[in-house]
Design a binder for these strands. Structure first.
Lengths: 149, 149
DNA sequence: TTAATGTCTACTGAACAGGTAGAGTTGGTC
DNA sequence: GACCAACTCTACCTGTTCAGTAGACATTAA
């Protein structure tokens, strides 16, 4: 399971991606729109800012903006930022590798082989899908809804 | 990340799969061989027993045996048993579905679409790979090691 | 100058991870 | 029929993480 925090982060980013690229979106706007506790969202956006995903303007008329285009922000990137390693085992992490001290020889570890395939499959999806894809996909669905109704 | 407990469970099962099918393997044998804290392993095996994966014999000469053939025990099954739902979001779980109360309309949820693909990819691997596969795969590797040496 | 914004640090309560401890039960074996 | 090696069960413990909450502070447009 991904954390609530990561889910909030991804939703906040989709909100920013859908917004006007000129006018910053306030924390409170995003919080209300996406039903995220405001003070919690504050911390999340701060973290995204420190990692160069969004930028902020302070003071009146302040708020948040995407720093990169939405099609350059992948799900994997955000997930790794917020939740840490994607890998199902420490010895399979690309960013935080740690040897399992209880298995002798990684290519002899029965478990590792299997989870390596799981990790590859997940990463394939996560790093090839962007915030823009997500927003686009749903706009298609919404249009279809309208057409049917 | 999968829990340490799940990793231990999978290793214990590979140990049982590799052992003689007649003579039960004692908790302490598995614990020593796989470097698992004995009392913790006890609880794990008990849980596997309650769920019909292994059987036990009490008293002297007692121990544990696989209840089903190793090729009928999938990684997904064990993982779900020990760690709970495989899905990255509660609203994608097959066994413990729970609606996200903060998103309106699941097919309009930007996040859900993406993680549905991740979940499918993971389940593909996890439910098509068995304990027997894992043991077999490593025996191949071990044979190769010997051939090289 | 002031009011509306983001920034930062600290705290908290509940749940979960990863075990440990110890009393109890069962069933071969002598 | 006693003994002892095994499994069984319940309880407990310590540390960490999750999901927030609180509140003082800094900045800036109007």
């Amino acid at each position: 399971m991904i954390s609530q925090k990561a889910k909030y982060a991804l939703r906040a980013l989709t909100a920013l991606a859908q917004a006007d690229t000129e006018r910053p979106l306030m924390i409170s706007e995003i919080a209300t729109q996406q039903a995220i506790p405001k003070k919690f969202l504050e911390q999340i956006l701060l973290e995204l800012k420190r990692n160069g995903i969004v930028e902020s303007r302070r003071g009146k008329q302040g708020g948040y903006l995407l720093l990169k285009p939405a099609q350059d922000i992948t799900f994997g990137e955000i997930l790794r930022l917020i939740d840490g390693p994607i890998a199902p085992l420490p010895c399979l992490s690309q960013t935080a590798y740690r040897r399992c001290e209880d298995c002798d020889g990684e290519h002899l570890c029965e478990i590792r082989h299997v989870f390596a395939r799981v990790a590859d499959a997940s990463r394939d999806v996560l790093f090839s899908t962007t915030i823009a894809d997500a927003v686009g996909g749903v706009e298609d669905a919404r249009a279809l809804d309208l057409a049917i109704a």
